Simulated assay, not measured.
Amino acid sequence: MIIHKDLGDKPFARSRVLLLKIKSGKIVLGGNKNLKIYGRIDCTTGKRMKVENRVFFENETEAINSGYRPCAVCMRKEYLLWKNQR
């Protein structure tokens, strides 16, 4: 898990490092550390969260092992599977 604030001191530096990690495949999913929800990087609800709450994952297994659940908006099928297993 990568914490967004740890990618740099200033917003420009963070966004530059983030873009490089996304392009290289080291970041595939984003999440909210307070709500324990993960989803796609381009999720409309995920884009609105505060930088302080944002974390990133290399894959879905990493997110699940960290105790996160799928986003009901951008990962509807995965969310419904998770919900039915509870």
Rank of each mutant, 00 (worst) to 15 (best):
I2D: 13
I2G: 08
I3F: 09
L7S: 03
L7W: 09
L7V: 02
G8P: 03
G8V: 02
G8S: 04
D9A: 12
D9Q: 14
K10Y: 13
K10C: 06
K10S: 12
K10T: 14
P11T: 05
F12V: 09
A13L: 09
R14Y: 14
S15F: 14
S15Q: 15
S15P: 00
S15R: 11
S15V: 02
R16C: 04
L18K: 10
L18N: 03
L18P: 02
L18E: 11
L19P: 00
L19D: 09
L20K: 15
L20P: 00
I22S: 02
K23C: 05
K23Y: 07
S24E: 08
G25M: 04
I27H: 00
V28C: 03
V28L: 03
V28I: 06
L29M: 01
G30H: 01
G31W: 00
G31F: 01
G31R: 00
K33R: 09
L35Q: 13
L35V: 07
K36W: 00
K36E: 00
K36A: 01
Y38N: 01
Y38I: 13
G39I: 13
G39Q: 02
R40L: 11
I41H: 00
I41K: 00
D42R: 01
C43M: 03
C43V: 01
T44L: 11
T45D: 12
G46S: 04
G46I: 06
K47D: 14
K47H: 05
K50Y: 10
K50A: 12
V51P: 13
E52P: 11
N53L: 05
V55A: 10
F56A: 06
F56K: 07
F56R: 07
E58M: 15
E58W: 10
E58A: 09
E58G: 15
N59S: 10
E60Q: 11
E60D: 07
E60L: 03
E62G: 11
E62F: 04
A63N: 07
I64N: 10
I64E: 14
G67E: 07
Y68D: 07
R69W: 08
P70N: 10
P70C: 12
C71W: 01
A72T: 11
A72R: 15
V73C: 06
C74L: 02
M75Q: 14
M75I: 09
R76D: 04
R76N: 11
Y79M: 04
Y79V: 05
Y79N: 02
Y79L: 09
L80Q: 03
L81R: 11
W82F: 14
Q85G: 09
Q85K: 05
